[in-house]
Every structure is written in structure tokens, then in C-alpha cells.
Amino acid sequence: MFPIEVTALNHWFGEGEARKQAIFDVNLTIDQGSLTILVGPSGSGKTTLLTLMGCLRDVQDGSVRLLGTELHGAGMSVLEAMRRRLGFIFQAHNLHESLTARQNVLTSLQVHGRGNPARQAAAVEHMLGLVGLADRIDYLPGNLSGGQKQRVAIARALVSNPDIIFADEPTAALDKETAIPIVRMLKELGQSRGTTTVMVTHDNRVLELADRIVTLEDGRIVKDERLR
């Protein structure tokens, strides 16, 4: 079984006259434990495809099977349960402004229920240590640099040991010196846990880290290279 199987996927934005197709007949299967990078020009549908696979958008036509579960027509509770098995890293890091790094990461554990507070605290501290923020645990996002915020976001996505990680241009807001190490960290942490990672990026600097590069243009897959 593949963690992600996309079959005959179409997607439209807008209503009526303004309705515009963004994804055309996409078929894609992703291997377990791989790092797949989606590339393509702006408006090519990379992010749309990513959010469709990541349960962040309703599937309109075709099929997306995630970890064996069909997302097309799935109910709210199925979607919520699926989302809890994923880790999402956003372009704008999307940390909660009023929560410290520790609290932000903790929200990713508390979504699974109350659990054991001491064990959760230990997991959060360990994870923030892994991303190199051991000394910034109780900082609010406002007091962290862009790279540090993105590392908190990575810790938040990874702490609950998700089956799949989706990353939407995680390096877009970062400079070169910060971008490469962050993606490398993401790849290493993913590999050590056997996590499947799908990333959208504009950033040519990080392509060499990919196992597979899928290129989209105008909502269609135009190139699919396996590097490893």
C-alpha cells in the first residue's frame, strides 16, 4: 500500500462563470519514507495539490487515498482523524502568536487527547532540542527569528510522529543560510522515523535533497524524476 495514491484528480476554483480548473487529471503515488518535492511555476497547482492530499481542501472529483482512506466524500470526523495523523508545515510557519514555542508544539500533542502531561512535556522539550531550540523553549514567536519560527513549526509537525509530513514552501521566508539546513533537518528527522514527506518549493537550492521531483505546469504533471 502506498501512503498516498492520487487517481484522476480534478479541482476547480470559483463558481459559475468564474469557475476555473486548477488541477487536471492528476495521477500520483508516493512511496513510503520518501522525500518528494513538487515544483513548478506560480499558479501551476502545486499548493492546491498539496492541500488536497493534506485534507485541507475538499476533494471535488477523482480520488485521493491517504493511508488507505478515501478522502473524496469523507465526513468531518474522518477528515479530523486523518489530519491528526499528518504533520503540516506552512510557508508562513502559522505559529500561534500568543503561545510560546513549548505551548505551540504541545498543541500538536494535545490534539490527540490529554495524555500524560509529564511525558508530553518531555517529548516537547526533546523535539525542540532536536531542532536546536533548547534555549528558546519559552519564547513567544514574536521574539524568535524567521528561521527559529520555522524550526518550531517543524518541531510541531514532527512531535506527534505523523505518518506523512506536508510542507508548503517551508523555506520561502528564509534566507539561503537558513533554508538549506532546515530542509536537511526535515529530511533527516523524517528519514530516521520513516516518515513520508511531500514538499512544495520554488527553491532550487533544496532540490538536491529530494528522492523524487514532480513538476507541475498548468495543473498537470509534466515531469516525474526519481533521483534515488
Partner: peptide, 14 residues
């Protein structure tokens, strides 16, 4: 709203 949407993306129920 954006912060709540992030929580929703993480799987928090309404």
C-alpha cells in the same frame, strides 16, 4: 481566524 485554521488543519474538532 488564521490561528484557528491552523488548529483545524492539525485535526482539532469544531
Amino acid at each position: 481566524l488564521a490561528e484557528y485554521a491552523t488548529f483545524k488543519a492539525m485535526g482539532y474538532p469544531h
